[in-house]
């Protein structure tokens, strides 16, 4: 395993990546990788120089009886100027390369395909131009994709190592990132900014579709309501649209009450009255969640008015009904 890594490291720019870097899979990744290699070899050279001289001096000038330390100059302007100026030149090169790569990383082409990204504790919502929402990111290969991102709660950070892309998601502000995938396949997407309990589970997959297949996928995925029983479609919506963050389906309470075995029951409200959990109550709770808040829960649920279509609300109701 190690010998493979060692040999592949020598060919750091090859298709398969290197010991330090996974295979580059976006248009900007090879640029980042070549800068990484440049800095790596500069660092390796200076590290070898420093440690080499150190070992040489320790061996050669090790304390021996009868041998005094020799007097050498206390300073040498030429030498000191040399080891100041040579590193300065090298870091200027690294700096400039870093800036050029960064400008490419940050500035998408005008014709990029736009996907809206919402980060929340602790999952991702990727919304396509037709309104369809998924928790995993699907993108076409060979097309620049621009992500317009925001957060619903704390700061998150979208990180796709294979694309060498990372950008924070800040609440009440939009940030942007972009990439153009160059290889079909499935890649990992992580939240890179610490965001609480399930930070390390706030991950997703990036699926890069072959040219032409993305449109078909999107068409198919967007019509899931028509293709499956409403209760199953409701389960997908429950997971994708964030209900799962506050409402469990196993009977335990989180921020909101569990959905399990709730349908058709009488439940106490915060104002002392009671309500029957039926289709109309669930619909009202989704659209105007603060009107009738269950006793024992804080009035914190945001409205989904305008975000969920009627068919989707019906599917969610069917899903809750199915949780006996």
């Amino acid at each position: 395993m190690f010998s493979n890594w060692a040999s592949s490291m020598l060919f750091a720019q090859s298709e398969g990546g290197s010991l330090f870097l996974s295979p580059p899979s976006s248009t900007v990744a090879p640029m980042v990788d070549s800068l990484f290699s440049l800095i790596f070899w500069i660092s390796a050279f200076f590290f070898a120089l420093i440690v080499g001289l150190m070992v040489l001096f320790v061996v050669k000038y090790r304390r021996r009886n009868g041998v005094e330390a020799q007097k050498t100059a206390h300073h040498n302007l030429l030498l000191e100027a040399a080891w100041s100026i040579i590193p300065i030149i090298l870091v200027v090169v690294i700096f400039v390369e870093g800036v050029l790569g960064y400008l490419d990383l940050r500035n998408p082409p005008d014709d990029a395909y736009e996907i809206r990204v919402t980060g929340r504790k602790w999952n991702w919502a990727f919304q396509y131009p037709n309104g369809h929402v998924e928790n995993n990111l699907h993108v076409p290969m060979g097309v620049p994709v621009r992500l317009v991102m925001t957060s619903e709660d704390v700061i998150h950070s979208l990180y796709i190592p294979a694309f060498r892309v990372k950008m924070d998601l800040v609440p009440e502000r939009y940030t942007k990132a972009w990439f153009e995938a160059t290889r079909p396949g499935t890649y990992r997407l992580y939240c890179a900014e610490y965001c609480g309990t399930e930070h390390s589970n706030m991950t997703a997959n990036v699926v890069v579709h072959e040219p032409g297949e993305f449109e078909a996928w999107l068409e198919d995925a967007s019509n899931f309501l028509d293709k499956m029983p409403p209760a199953e479609a409701g389960k997908l919506l429950y997971e994708r649209r964030g209900c799962i963050q506050c409402h469990t389906i196993d009977g335990t309470s989180k921020t909101g009450p569990s959905f399990r075995g709730i349908f058709g029951t009488q439940q106490p409200l915060a104002d002392g009255s009671t309500v029957t959990v039926d289709e109309n109550y669930i619909r009202e709770s989704i659209l105007e969640p603060l009107t009738k808040v269950r006793a024992g829960y804080r009035p914190v649920m945001p409205t989904y008015r305008g975000q969920l279509k009627d068919a989707e609300i019906s599917a969610i109701i069917e899903f809750i009904k199915s949780l006996k």
Binding site: M31, E97, V99, G101, Y102
Partner: peptide
């Protein structure tokens, strides 16, 4: 690696 912008983003 971390001072250089392009590599730091990664």
């Amino acid at each position: 690696f971390l001072g250089a912008l392009a590599t730091d983003v990664h």
